[in-house]
Design a protein around this nucleic acid. Sequence first.
DNA 1: CCGTTTATATACATCGAAGTGTACAAATCG
DNA 2: CGATTTGTACACTTCGATGTATATAAACGG
Lengths: 218, 218
Amino acid sequence: MTGLGQAEPPATESVVRVRRLRRTERREQLLDAATRAFARTGYPATGLDDVAAEAGLTRAMLYRHFDSKADMYRAVLDRACVRLTEATGADDFDDGAIPALVRAAAADPDGFRLLFRHAVREPDFRDLVDELTAASRDIAHRSLARTIPPGPWLDWASRLVPALTIEAVIAWLDAGQPDPGQAAERVGQAVHGVMAAALPGAVPHVPPPATAPGTDDG
Amino acid sequence: MTGLGQAEPPATESVVRVRRLRRTERREQLLDAATRAFARTGYPATGLDDVAAEAGLTRAMLYRHFDSKADMYRAVLDRACVRLTEATGADDFDDGAIPALVRAAAADPDGFRLLFRHAVREPDFRDLVDELTAASRDIAHRSLARTIPPGPWLDWASRLVPALTIEAVIAWLDAGQPDPGQAAERVGQAVHGVMAAALPGAVPHVPPPATAPGTDDG
DNA sequence: CCGTTTATATACATCGAAGTGTACAAATCG
DNA sequence: CGATTTGTACACTTCGATGTATATAAACGG
C-alpha cells in the first residue's frame, strides 16, 4: 500500500549472484540447516528464525517447503532415520554393524546427535526414534541371550548396550573422530566389556542386602 | 497421590479439608512436583500449569515461592546437584564412588534423570551440570591416565566413562533397580570394560587406512 | 523477451504461556 | 474471637513465536 523500501539495485560489480536452487535442492539445504540448528538448541528452544538464519534466507521461505515447524522437524528426523537404517541395515549384531554405525555417524554427526540426544526427549517425536531403540534393544537382547542367562541383568545389558554404543560413538565424535579404522573395534570392545559385566560371574558375591529396610542415606 | 498430607475427609459438604503446609514444607513439595513434571516433558515443554497440577494447587501459588519459571527450575536443579554431590562427594574414583552414585540415583531418580537427560541440553541451565560433568571427566582422566597412554583414546575414554556410568545407572533404574548390592559392582565392571577398550592392545592391528579412497563408502 | 519460479522484505494476525492483580475462603495460632 | 497465613479463582496484560499475506525483484527457461 505504501512505497515500501525496495531492495537496492546491484549498483556495483560485486553483485551477490545468488544461485537459485531448484525446489528439491533447496529443500535438502533447508533440511541440512534445520538439522544443524535443532541439533544445537533442541526443538522447542529453536525458533524458525534460527533455522532461516542458518539456511541464509527468511522465515517466510520455510513455509514454501514445510507446512509447519513440526512438519519440518519430522522431515529432518525422518531423513536422519532413513540414512541411519540404510547405512546400518536392520540386520543383527554381525561384525559389520558397529563399523556401519560409526560410518553413518561420521557422515551425519548432527543428525546422529539430533536423533539420540534431542529427539528422544521430545514427547511428540520420540516415536520416530523409539522404533530404532526398540529394534536395537530387541537385537541386543537376542544377541546377548546367547551368553547371558535370562533375568534382570540381561534386561539391563540389553538396555545398556545400545545406549553405550550411541554414547561411545558420540564420545568418539566429540573427541575429534580419531582414526576411524580403530573406532569400531574400540566401541566393540567397550560393548564386550558391558556384556562381561552382565554375566553371572561378574560380581564375586552378593553382599547381604541390609536387612533393615530403613534408608539411612539421608 | 497428590501428596497433600493426611486429607481427612470430613464426610460432610463438598468442603475439601486440605491440610495447609508451612512455607518450607510446601516449597519442598513444590520442588518435588516440579522435578517430576520437568523430568517427564523437559523444561521448555512443561508449563507452569503442569507443575501446579502435579503439585495439586494453582499456578498463582508457584509465584509465592519462586520468582519465575526459570528461578524454579534452577532451584530444582540446584537441589538435585547438592544432593548428588553430598551423596558422592567430590573425591576421586575410589571404590566408594560408584556405590554412592547408585545410592544417590536410587534415592532421587527423577532428579537424576532431570540432570543428565534434560538439563544438559538446556542452554540456559547446562552450566549447572557442566560443573559436574567437567569434574567427572577430569577425575576420570586422572584415573585413566595411570593405565592408558596419552592420546585421543585416553580422551575418548575420559569422555565415555562418565557418560557410560550415567547411562548404566539410568539403565539400571529403567530395569527396575534389581538388587542394589550388585548394581555398583556391575557398573564398575562395565567401566572397566571401557577402560580396557581404550588400552593400546585393545585393537589387534590397525587396518590400513584405505589408500584407495573410494571402496564402497556410498 | 516474457512468463514462471525463486526469493526478499515487511507488516500483520494469532495463539499460547508467562507473569500480575485482586477479591475471597479456609485454616492455624495467639 | 480475630489476625495472619495459606490457598483458590479468575481476569488481565505482556510477550515472543508461529503462521499468513502482499508487493517486489531477480534468475532461469523457452
